[in-house]
């Protein structure tokens, strides 16, 4: 039998077997119809959000607008939803510079400029030290006084390392041999080639002003009061660092250590170490930390250091001096 003929017969059979719907319509179908005015609150909320997000089709927009024209409650909902758009605050990320990376060229440039700057600074210091030595000389002086008994010779044995001390000038005493009359002798640090201790005798001076060290033992790198035949209590301490040293200290504290309060206090080794660690961090993108921890009294308790390889917290020993 012809296969095409067989297929045709099957198609006719299937058509004949297919169910056909009755040609009727739902009574009252129009009652199901809706207008934009019939949109529920939920619809309005959804469409209002979509409107805010600019996500409405043109048809939806028209229907929403029709509803809003006719329904005050919908308008209130729409209006409230339009207010929910957030405005971004104007905040910025403070540590942006720490996120940045240096290119190879920038790294080389930074190392070279740092090296040149350091060399220039050292050169300036050396030249200044050679040609303007007064700027660097530290003159620590402490006034001591003593009242002498009449006609009792006064002897101070003073040792100085560099320079050796000697009497510079002693103003004339008006009445040198009477007690309680003040006359002055000033010891000044002047260079001397003699490394030996110098013995100075005051036979005529009721009150002597002697420069000694700031600490109570009268120790400095410049001189030591070794002995005296009289009690010599310290009265005042004057620090007379050179202007350049104070300037360097204040600049270092302000620019390198980033201290906000002005100070020209002498720079300690820990200050230099902290600054060095910060410099290395910036230069090489390391993440080391060095800091002092202090107790309630404000005294340094320990030194804390951390890096990728090593972390320690070293307590600071106190001495009785």
């Amino acid at each position: 039998m012809d296969p095409e003929r067989i297929n045709m017969d099957e198609d006719e059979f299937m058509n004949a077997a297919r169910l056909r719907p009755e040609n009727i319509s739902l009574p009252g179908k129009d009652l199901l119809r809706k207008t934009p005015a019939d949109l529920t609150d939920t619809h309005i909320e959804y469409l209002s959000v979509a409107s805010l997000e600019n996500d409405l089709s043109p048809e939806q927009r028209v229907e929403l607008e029709i509803n809003l024209r006719e329904n005050s409650v919908s308008r209130a909902v729409f209006s409230a939803i339009q207010k929910t758009r957030l405005a971004a605050p104007s905040v910025t990320y403070k540590n942006k510079s720490s996120l940045k990376k240096l290119t190879a060229g920038q790294k080389v440039f930074r190392i070279v400029t740092s090296g040149i700057s350091a060399a220039a600074a050292i050169a300036i210091l050396v030249v200044s030290y050679i040609f303007i030595p007064d700027l660097f000389r530290e003159r620590n002086s402490q006034i001591v006084s003593a009242t002498i008994m009449e006609n009792v010779p006064y002897t101070f044995l003073i040792e100085a390392t560099d320079p050796v001390m000697r009497i510079r000038e002693a103003p004339q005493a008006e009445e040198p041999f009477k007690p309680a009359k003040e006359v002055f002798a000033l010891l000044s640090s002047v260079p001397d080639t003699s490394p030996e201790p110098v013995q100075i005798e005051y036979q005529t001076l009721p009150l002597a002003f002697i420069p000694v060290a700031p600490d109570i033992r009268y120790q400095t790198s410049e001189l030591s009061l070794l002995a005296s035949n009289n009690d010599v209590p310290p009265l005042e301490y004057y620090e007379e660092r050179g202007r350049l040293r104070r300037f360097i200290a204040s600049t270092f504290r302000e620019k390198v250590l980033g201290e906000e309060k002005y100070s020209d206090d002498p720079i300690k080794a820990i200050d230099i170490a902290i600054a060095s660690v910060g410099g290395l961090n910036k230069l090489l993108d390391w993440n080391m930390e060095l800091m002092e921890t202090v107790d309630e009294a404000g005294e340094v308790k320990s030194v804390y250091f951390s890096s990728a390889l090593l972390t320690f917290n070293s307590p600071v020993r106190k001495t009785n001096e």
Binding site: P89, V91, T92, L99, K100, K101
Partner: peptide, 17 residues
């Protein structure tokens, strides 16, 4: 690296915000 630094300039604030 230049692109990376540009990303820092342009997007760090926004991500932080």
């Amino acid at each position: 690296v230049k692109d990376y630094n540009r990303a820092v300039d342009e997007y760090a604030d926004a991500v932080y915000r």
